[in-house]
Measured scan of single mutants.
Amino acid sequence: TYTFKVDNKDQAKKAAKWAKKLGLSFQIEKHGDTFKITVQ
């Protein structure tokens, strides 16, 4: 499981695209202005 934080929606979208490309499941949680992405 890999967790990282991004500062904006664009970065969150890029991370989601990357995870989908690799066939991984992911969750994006919004914490105020940051997004926490968990990829597994």
Results as ranks from 00 to 15, higher is better:
1 T>A: 11
1 T>W: 13
1 T>Q: 10
1 T>I: 12
2 Y>K: 05
2 Y>C: 15
2 Y>E: 02
3 T>C: 15
3 T>I: 11
3 T>H: 08
3 T>S: 10
3 T>D: 04
3 T>G: 02
4 F>D: 01
4 F>K: 02
4 F>R: 01
4 F>C: 15
4 F>P: 02
4 F>Y: 05
4 F>V: 03
4 F>E: 01
4 F>A: 02
5 K>T: 15
5 K>A: 12
6 V>F: 10
6 V>N: 01
7 D>I: 09
7 D>W: 13
7 D>H: 12
7 D>F: 14
7 D>V: 10
7 D>Y: 14
8 N>W: 03
8 N>S: 12
8 N>D: 07
8 N>E: 03
8 N>R: 06
8 N>I: 03
8 N>Y: 03
9 K>V: 12
9 K>R: 12
9 K>I: 14
9 K>L: 14
9 K>F: 14
10 D>W: 15
10 D>E: 14
10 D>C: 14
10 D>A: 14
11 Q>L: 10
11 Q>A: 13
11 Q>N: 05
12 A>H: 01
12 A>E: 01
12 A>L: 11
12 A>C: 15
13 K>T: 08
13 K>V: 10
13 K>H: 08
13 K>W: 10
14 K>M: 10
14 K>G: 04
14 K>V: 08
14 K>P: 01
14 K>F: 08
15 A>E: 02
15 A>F: 15
15 A>Q: 02
15 A>N: 02
15 A>S: 03
15 A>C: 15
16 A>W: 10
16 A>E: 08
16 A>D: 02
17 K>Q: 12
17 K>H: 09
17 K>L: 12
17 K>W: 11
17 K>F: 09
17 K>T: 08
18 W>K: 04
18 W>G: 02
18 W>S: 02
18 W>N: 02
18 W>T: 03
18 W>E: 02
19 A>Q: 01
19 A>T: 01
19 A>K: 00
19 A>I: 11
19 A>W: 03
19 A>V: 04
19 A>N: 01
20 K>S: 08
20 K>I: 09
20 K>T: 09
20 K>A: 10
21 K>V: 06
21 K>F: 07
21 K>N: 09
21 K>Y: 07
21 K>I: 07
21 K>E: 07
21 K>L: 08
21 K>T: 08
22 L>D: 01
22 L>T: 04
22 L>Q: 08
22 L>A: 08
23 G>E: 03
23 G>A: 03
23 G>W: 02
23 G>F: 04
23 G>V: 02
24 L>C: 09
25 S>L: 11
25 S>Y: 09
25 S>N: 11
25 S>R: 11
25 S>G: 06
26 F>M: 07
26 F>D: 00
26 F>L: 08
26 F>R: 00
26 F>C: 13
26 F>S: 03
26 F>A: 06
27 Q>T: 14
27 Q>L: 11
28 I>W: 04
28 I>M: 08
28 I>S: 03
28 I>T: 02
29 E>K: 08
29 E>S: 09
29 E>N: 05
29 E>Y: 07
30 K>Q: 12
30 K>N: 06
30 K>A: 09
31 H>I: 14
31 H>L: 13
31 H>Q: 13
31 H>C: 15
31 H>V: 14
31 H>M: 14
31 H>F: 12
32 G>Q: 05
32 G>S: 04
32 G>E: 07
32 G>R: 05
33 D>Y: 06
33 D>I: 06
33 D>E: 11
33 D>N: 12
34 T>R: 11
34 T>N: 09
34 T>F: 14
34 T>W: 14
34 T>L: 10
34 T>Q: 14
35 F>C: 06
35 F>W: 14
35 F>E: 00
35 F>Q: 01
35 F>P: 00
35 F>I: 06
36 K>P: 00
36 K>V: 15
36 K>Q: 13
37 I>Q: 00
37 I>M: 04
37 I>V: 10
37 I>D: 00
37 I>A: 02
38 T>E: 03
38 T>D: 02
39 V>P: 00
39 V>S: 01
39 V>Y: 05
40 Q>L: 11
40 Q>N: 11
40 Q>K: 12
40 Q>S: 14
40 Q>P: 03
40 Q>W: 15
